[in-house]
């Protein structure tokens, strides 16, 4: 069986980001505010080099969100 997120063409990273957001929004107001302020932790960044020059630095999650 193919998972729904895979059928929709999402990456696993994107799927997890959506699931995590739903979890954060379901919290009680106190912990929710704290979690929303922190947001999705985006620590993995990458830069594409072309012709010996670095391009723009992007986070993995912003890139998979654009897909």
């Amino acid at each position: 069986m193919v998972a729904a997120w895979k059928a929709a063409g999402f990456t696993y990273n994107k799927y997890l980001a959506i699931a995590a957001r739903a979890v954060r929004r379901s919290l009680k107001d106190g912990p929710r505010a704290k979690a929303e302020r922190r947001g999705n932790v985006e620590q993995l960044k990458f830069v594409k080099w072309e012709n010996g020059k670095p391009g723009e630095s992007k986070t993995i999650s912003s890139e998979s969100a654009a897909q």
């Binding site: 997890l16 980001a17 954060r24 919290l27 009680k28 107001d29 912990p31 999705n40």
Partner: peptide, 14 residues
């Protein structure tokens, strides 16, 4: 990615 004790969820918000 996210993990919270069950007590911290609000049935209302869900």
């Amino acid at each position: 990615v996210e993990c919270y004790p069950v007590e911290e969820f609000s049935a209302e918000n869900v």
